[in-house]
Nucleic acid binder design. Structure first.
Lengths: 209, 209
DNA sequence: ACGTTCATGTTAACAGCATAAACATTTGGA
DNA sequence: TCCAAATGTTTATGCTGTTAACATGAACGT
């Protein structure tokens, strides 16, 4: 017999973990793994995930995740994509409820930084994974699209009667500013203060108004 | 007998590693370890150091480093401090050979970004370690001083007849901008191009001239 | 000159990690 | 109903950081 005398317990705990969408025989492990991973990264600063720990938390064997992800990096990629989509949605929503110009970008920047502060490990994960994935295999991944959306959201706060080159430069300027500010906060070099963020961000003048 | 028949070889390779400042009996391992670590991080993007690999490279036993560093983090801290000092020196030198105002800061920013691009793993290491160390034990570490020097270098490009608060805001703005730009490049989101860097950085207008 | 002490290095061992191979079981379709 | 594919478990391998016990050699007091 492969399974020992506590097999029933193991199965039960497996069932407890997730019993929705039970299309196949034990549970929807892949989704459960991503959900648990996202939750684990939610309140953390530095991304640190152990396959064994995650599997234990899911009530499943240590190597079970290899049926759904070829390796750890693949799981992290999935998490990073999920996180990037969340950030993108947040950002798009903020861009919608805001006008253009300096104040508009101020709101936009504050939103970016706040999301980063609230999900430090996820921001780190996003940039860490995309830095390795996109370069390795020149694949037009979904992460590429998601990043395009992000940049588009930032560019949306700028008026349209400026040259494309200047527009590109200004977009990069804005992205660098908010990203750098967020990173300095996450790395403990600057303390988070929304008012201060807005002051710093609204100092930006792209010559766009 | 504790040492096997190849003990002589081991000793010899240990001597080869570093024979200067031989104050104590085998070699100056601590310095050699830091030097080797710096070299290993020099041409790397993501910081990744293995104690065993490093020890092997130094011709020394796997656990020998524990006589000089309480743990791996302590070694990384030492490396980060060394790197931060190098960056600081580079930055101070750049600040000296440059005037104030927008162009001055442009030169300064290009220097910061270029150093980051040339030493990716070291920049990552610096911010990674300082983010954990300074917060954990509220110690007025040498890294704190080094960072102060860094900010001072950036602030030096600004004229003096502006209010301290505005000055602080502008400094943070400038730091965020160049740091974010550097990070986006290291993470593969922006390709390194000195001219573009200068364009983006000189877009900054802090109301300081 | 000699013996002790301390800094430094080595060996062996432990727990945890990612991962691969072989085996077991459940599901779903022919 | 039966076979194949999907999913999970067990076992094993080689890596990692770290600790404990032991060895060595240099420095220092007498």
């Amino acid at each position: 017999m492969n399974v020992k005398d506590n097999s029933v317990n193991i199965k039960e705990s497996s069932r407890d973990a997730s019993k929705e969408s039970g299309t196949y025989h034990h549970g929807d492990l892949r989704a459960a793994a991503i959900a648990a991973g996202m939750e684990k990264f939610g309140g953390q600063n530095h991304p640190d995930l152990g396959l064994r720990a995650l599997a234990r938390e899911l009530g499943v064997s240590a190597t079970a995740l290899y049926r759904h992800f070829p390796n750890k990096d693949a799981l992290l990629d999935a998490l990073a994509l999920e996180a990037l989509n969340q950030l993108g949605a947040h950002q798009a929503q903020a861009a919608q409820s805001v006008g253009g110009g300096r104040e508009g970008f101020g709101e936009m920047g504050v939103t970016y930084v706040r999301w980063a502060v609230e999900h430090p490990a996820l921001v780190r994960l996003i940039y860490d994974r995309v830095g390795k994935v996109d370069l390795a295999a020149g694949n037009p991944t979904k992460m590429g699209e998601a990043f395009y959306q992000l940049r588009a959201g930032i560019a949306a706060t700028m008026s349209e009667d400026i040259s494309p080159e200047h527009r590109a430069t200004a977009t990069l300027h804005a992205w660098s500013l908010v990203h750098g500010l967020a990173m300095l906060i996450l790395d403990g070099q600057v303390e988070y203060d929304p008012d201060m963020i807005r002051k710093v961000v609204t100092l930006a003048d792209f010559g766009l108004e």
